[in-house]
Design a binder for these strands. Structure first.
Lengths: 193, 193
DNA sequence: CAAAATCAATACGCTTGCGTATGGCAGGCA
DNA sequence: TGCCTGCCATACGCAAGCGTATTGATTTTG
């Protein structure tokens, strides 16, 4: 796997945060395997020597980077939607968010592929649980009983997860127009009336 | 990642097929990374020397193993369902198949995670296209217009793909009873009336 | 039974990636 | 000015994995 990794220009002195940013970017572009110490160093225009001053181990970097990503996912994706009063509209808004905001979801897709890694799994578990609870609650408020709401939420979230996987192979070979139509149908099917 | 890999007992002489079987088993249990020459050799109770007599390279083994898996998926999953006359029932049957037959889907899940690997991608593309066409056609026969049928098929297939990913973290923490209820809702939502 | 073909062990070289050890250089502060 | 601390380079050691080369054993076949 040789993935094109955008090089970032110098910056005489680096901080831990710079390494975390680079880690997330590489993660999104090339998967967990691309988060390699020496590769990141090249990307940042330095050598390993720098890295091991800021972090004790590669794991520590991952930990820090993921923590940051998890917070940003919570605050910049979920939180804004929470303000939408109408539950039906809230679900629609989430589908739109999720279907149009790429960058953060690239990280999620990469993490999904490394779900058996002990350091990754808990992150996905927490994020998924939050999102699932969120959607379930919206369905409940929209009038569905507890079980039905949970099942619709499961279906919606599974479809989301599956879609970002399949999107990588351009499997649902769609143009923008078809995609919008798909999203409309998606919403129509899951939120009837 | 250390994954428990079941050891298989001797068998004085091995064939290429034995290596392919071991490759698929390891793939299902530990992902693409577990399909390593020396590791498979240990599993089969021999050394690398044997492997490189049967295959020129690791890639060649993967190729052969996946070809076999792809055929079996086509003949043992899709073909039997094709005989069901009623399209609605055909979709239901496919959902049941897919939601209850584990082994083959473990391989699929593993491949999904390695979708950026040039040797894996075409396999997933072919398999997904076949399945997607299959479901789309069933929805058409069930009376949906072309676009709607395609979208429902996409939704169903995405939900399937997402589910087998999430299942690995026991995310939709369900017992057998709840799972059956979920499948019923799943079918109910996608095939109304 | 002998020779040839088939299958396997051992030992090696090469690459990648993590982690360590140590030394060097710059800028702030005494 | 000179030194100390923060940041980085260089040079290792080590493990895992692929692939090669050579030799050895066992089966098959003439």
């Amino acid at each position: 796997m040789t993935v094109a990794i955008s090089k970032i220009e110098p910056k005489s002195r680096l901080s831990a945060a710079d390494w975390e940013d680079a880690a997330l970017a590489s993660l999104a572009e090339g998967g967990l395997g691309a988060v390699a110490v020496e590769s990141l160093a090249r990307r940042l225009g330095v050598t390993k020597g720098s890295f091991y001053w800021h972090f004790a181990t590669r794991e520590a970097l991952l930990q820090a980077a993921l923590e940051r990503w998890e917070r940003s996912d919570e605050h910049e994706v979920l939180a804004p939607i929470e303000t939408v009063a109408d539950p039906r509209e809230r679900i629609r808004e989430m589908v739109r968010q999720v279907s149009h905001k790429r960058p953060s979801h690239a990280v999620f897709a990469a993490l999904l592929k490394a779900i058996d890694q002990p350091s990754i799994r808990p992150v996905i578990e927490r994020v998924s649980q939050r999102r699932l609870d969120f959607v379930t609650e919206a369905f409940r408020q929209a009038g569905f009983d507890a079980v039905t709401a949970a099942n619709r939420a499961r279906l919606a979230y599974s479809a989301y997860v599956g879609f970002i996987q399949l999107a990588q192979i351009g499997q649902p070979r769609m143009n923008h127009e078809e995609f919008e139509a798909y999203i409309r149908d998606f919403i129509e099917i899951l939120i009837p009336h």
